[in-house]
Design a protein around this nucleic acid. Structure first.
Length: 627
RNA sequence: CGGGAUGUAGCGCAGUCUGGUAGCGCACUUGAAUGGGGUUCAAGGGGCCGGAGGUUCGAAUCCUCUCAUCCCGACCA
C-alpha cells in the first residue's frame, strides 16, 4: 500500500519535528539531510504545518482553462470558469471549487468580524421553510414564482428560503417579550435560493447564492434608525476592508416598503445598474431614486394665446421640434401608462425620460407599463404622437419640471395637430405633480448643486429600514416600559457574498486575468518554481514554501512540472496579488523575484530576504484596506 | 412567459444544406528533446452526435415531439 509508506515517512519525520522550534528544524530538514523529493511527495507532513492556509498547485483541484466556455458572457463569469473557481451544475447553480471558496470565505470572515463588532450575533436559520409562515406574512401569494415551492412526503407545503424575514420574525416573537431584551441584531451567512426567471452572468445572478442576511429588532423608531446607521457604517467598513471601490447609494425600497434604503454598489464599468454620483459631495443614488436639483423657477412669462398648428406626420418629439423650430425643452410629451390596468397620462418635458419606479410609487401601483399604440388609441381616441393634456379625459400626472414651463407645445389630441403656447392652470390642470423623471448628467446635485456623474455599479449590499411591516403581519410584539404591547421595529441588511467576489473580479481584471484585492484573494502569494528539473532551485523553492507557511503567509505553490510560460499564464489568470519566482536568477545572483499582479515591475530580492520583504509588502498592501 | 440561437470528446469548434465507417485544435496518457511568457516531435486513450419517436437498405445529417443551455425583453427582498 503506497499510502502506508507515505504515512510512515511522515509520522517519523513529523514526530521528530515536535521537539524543536519549527522554523529552525525545518531549515535543517530542507537544507541538510532530508531529500527534497521526499518532502515534496510527503503531503501529510506539510499539510499539518500549513493548517490549510497554503497549498500545492500539483495537489489542488484547480482546473484552469485556456479557452472560455461558450456559456459565459461577462468577464467575472469567464474568468471564474477559466481560473478554476467555479463550475456550473445547472442553470444558475454552481459548484465552488477550492479557490473560489477561499475567496468567498475571506469575504465571509470580514463580514463576520464587522457584524460582530457592530453588535450583531450570528445564527443559522433553516433553508427549508414551511408554507404556513409565508401564508401568515402574506408573501406565499405575493412572492411569485421566484419562491421555489414543494411538498414533502406528508403533503406539507414548503419552500426554499429566498430570504428569512418570516423565519427570523417567528423566532424572535417566540422568544423575545420585553423591551429589556432589545435591541437585537441577528445575522446569518447562508445559501439562498431564488428561482430567478433568468439566471445569468455566473455568480452575479445565480439562483443559488451565498448571502449574509441580517435582521434587527428595536423597541422604537429612533432605535431602529440608530441601528440602521450602525449597519451602514459596518457596511462601509466591510467593503473597504474587502479592498473594493464602492459607493453607498440611496435606493428605492421597493415592495418591501420602508423609508430608508441604501444600496452598496461596487463600481464597475460592466455593472448592471446605473447610479448617479455627485462629483463634489457624497450624494449618490441609483436611477430609481436619483433626484436632481430643481431648476430655479423661471421668470414669469406672459401667457400667449393658445394656437393650434398643423404638424402633418410629425409624431416624435424630435420631428415636431424640428418642424416647429422649437427646443425639446419647450415641449411637453404625453405618455399613456397602464397602472395596474388603468390608463394614466404622464406629462414630461420633451427632453426627459420617465423613471417608472418613481411613477409606480406615486401611483401606489404594483405594475406600470407604457401602453402600445393600440391601447393608447383605445383609451384616448387619438393616435400616439398627437396626445396632449388639454381636454384629455384621463388622470394627468405631471413631472415637476413641467410645472415650471410656460407657453409650451403639446399634442392637440387630434391627428396631425399640435397646440402651442399652452399653460398650466389656464389650459389644463394636472391631478398630481411629482418628480417622475430620470436624472441626466446635465442635472445638478440635489444636495450641493455640484456636477452629477452617471456611472455603473454592481449591487453587493442593501440595507432597509423595514419598520413594522413583518412584525405586524406576524404579530411579533413585546411589552414596552409602559407594559404596552407593540410590534418590533425591524430592519434588514443583506450582502451578496458570492456576488461580491464576482463584483471584485468585474472591477479588478485585465486581459490576462483576475487582479484580486489582497484581502479577498484566495491566497496572498503565488510561489513559482520555474525550474522543477533543477535540484538547487527546487530545493530553494521548497524551503521558501515552508518558510512562508511557517510565517503565516498564505501561499499557493506552483510546484508542477510545467514550463515557466504556463505557470506565468496561470498565475496571471488566477490573479493572486503577489508572485514570487524562483528560477535562474537564483543560481546566477542568489536572488528570487517578486512581482505584484497589479503592476508591471519585477523586483529581484536576495533569497534570504524573501520572506521578510514579502511580509512587509503584504502588510503595507493590507494597510490600504484598513480603516 | 415572448423573441432569437445552440446542443457533436473535458474546453473551443467543423461536419448537417446535398443521408453512406465521426473529425480538427487545445487538454489528457506515454516516450524523446526543450526549459523565464501557453515549446516541439512521435505514438496513444477518450464521443449512444442532448433524449424519444418516425422516414430510409442506411440518420449527427431529413421529419415530429421533448429536454437542456445561452442571448434579448419582461422580472429582480
Amino acid at each position: 500500500m503506497p499510502a502506508a509508506t507515505g504515512w510512515a515517512l511522515s509520522s517519523k519525520k513529523g514526530s521528530s519535528t515536535k521537539k524543536f522550534p519549527r522554523t529552525s528544524c525545518l531549515k535543517f530538514l530542507f537544507m541538510n539531510w532530508m531529500p527534497w523529493r521526499a518532502i515534496k511527495n510527503n503531503f501529510h507532513f506539510l499539510y499539518t504545518l500549513s493548517k490549510g492556509l497554503s497549498m500545492r498547485f500539483s495537489q489542488l483541484l484547480l482546473p484552469t482553462l485556456k479557452e472560455t466556455p461558450a456559456e459565459a458572457e461577462v468577464v467575472s463569469h469567464k474568468l471564474m470558469l477559466r481560473a478554476g473557481f467555479i463550475r456550473k451544475l445547472a442553470s444558475g447553480i454552481y459548484c465552488y471549487l477550492p479557490l473560489g471558496l477561499k475567496s468567498i470565505r475571506k469575504v465571509e470572515q470580514i463580514v463576520r468580524e464587522e457584524m460582530n463588532n457592530a453588535g450583531a450575533q450570528e445564527l443559522l436559520l433553516p433553508m427549508v421553510q414551511p408554507a404556513d409562515l409565508w401564508q401568515e406574512s402574506g408573501r406565499w401569494h405575493k412572492y411569485g414564482a421566484e419562491l421555489l415551492r414543494f411538498t414533502d412526503r406528508h403533503q406539507r407545503e414548503s419552500c426554499l428560503g429566498p430570504t428569512h424575514e418570516e423565519v427570523i420574525t417567528d423566532l424572535v416573537r417566540k422568544n423575545i417579550h420585553s423591551y429589556r431584551s432589545l435591541p437585537l441584531n441577528l445575522y446569518q451567512i447562508q445559501t439562498k435560493f431564488r428561482d430567478e426567471i433568468r439566471p445569468r452572468f455566473g455568480l452575479m445572478r445565480g439562483r443559488e447564492f451565498i448571502m449574509k442576511d441580517g435582521y434587527s429588532f428595536d423597541a422604537t423608531e429612533k432605535g431602529a434608525e440608530e441601528t440602521y446607521e450602525k449597519m451602514k457604517y459596518a457596511y462601509h467598513r466591510i467593503f473597504t476592508r474587502c479592498g473594493l471601490s464602492f459607493r453607498a447609494v440611496e435606493a428605492d425600497s421597493g415592495t418591501i416598503g420602508g423609508s430608508f434604503s441604501h444600496e452598496f454598489m461596487v463600481l464597475a464599468a460592466t455593472g448592471e445598474d446605473t447610479i448617479v454620483i455627485c462629483k463634489e459631495c457624497s450624494y449618490a443614488a441609483n436611477m430609481e431614486k436619483a433626484r436632481a436639483m430643481e431648476t430655479p423657477a423661471p421668470q414669469a412669462e406672459e401667457e400667449l394665446p393658445l394656437t393650434k398648428v398643423e404638424t402633418p406626420g410629425k409624431r416624435k418629439v424630435q420631428a415636431v421640434c424640428e418642424f416647429l423650430a422649437i427646443s425639446p425643452a419647450n415641449l411637453v410629451k404625453t405618455l399613456i401608462y397602464m397602472a395596474d390596468g388603468k390608463p394614466v397620462a404622464v406629462l414630461l418635458r420633451g427632453d426627459h425620460e420617465v423613471q417608472e419606479v418613481k411613477l409606480q410609487n406615486l401611483l401606489g401601483a404594483t405594475e406600470v407599463r407604457l401602453t402600445d399604440d393600440k391601447e393608447t388609441f383605445d383609451s384616448t381616441g387619438t393616435p400616439s404622437g398627437y396626445l396632449g393634456p388639454v381636454g384629455l379625459s384621463l388622470p394627468l400626472v405631471a413631472d415637476l419640471e413641467v410645472t415650471k414651463m410656460a407657453n409650451f407645445t403639446v399634442g392637440a389630441n387630434e391627428k396631425n395637430f399640435h397646440l402651442q403656447n399652452v399653460n398650466i392652470g389656464r389650459d389644463f390642470t394636472p391631478a398630481r405633480t411629482a418628480d417622475l423623471r430620470m436624472v441626466t448628467k446635465a442635472d445638478r446635485c440635489p444636495v450641493c448643486g455640484g456636477q452629477l456623474e452617471l456611472t455603473r455599479g454592481i449591487e453587493v449590499g442593501h440595507i432597509f429600514k423595514l419598520g413594522t411591516t413583518y412584525s405586524e403581519a406576524l404579530k411579533a410584539t413585546f411589552l414596552d416600559d409602559q407594559g404596552k404591547e407593540i410590534p418590533f421595529v425591524m430592519g434588514c441588511y443583506g450582502i451578496g457574498v458570492s456576488r461580491a467576489v464576482a463584483a471584485a473580479i468585474e472591477q479588478n481584471h485585465d486581459k490576462d486575468g483576475i487582479i484580486f484585492p489582497l484581502p479577498i484573494a484566495p491566497f496572498q502569494v503565488m510561489l513559482l518554481n520555474l525550474s522543477t528539473q533543477d535540484e538547487a532551485i527546487s530545493k530553494a523553492a521548497e524551503s521558501l514554501y515552508a518558510d512562508f507557511t511557517t510565517n503565516g503567509i498564505e501561499v499557493l505553490f506552483d510546484d508542477r512540472d510545467e514550463r515557466p510560460g504556463i505557470k506565468f499564464k496561470d498565475a496571471d489568470l488566477i490573479g493572486i496579488p503577489f508572485r514570487v519566482m524562483v528560477g535562474n536568477n537564483l543560481t546566477k545572483e542568489g536572488k528570487i523575484e517578486i512581482r505584484e499582479r497589479a503592476g508591471s515591475r519585477t523586483t529581484a530580492v536576495p533569497f534570504e530576504e524573501a520572506t521578510s520583504r514579502l511580509k512587509q509588502m503584504i502588510e503595507s498592501a493590507m494597510k490600504n484596506c484598513q480603516l
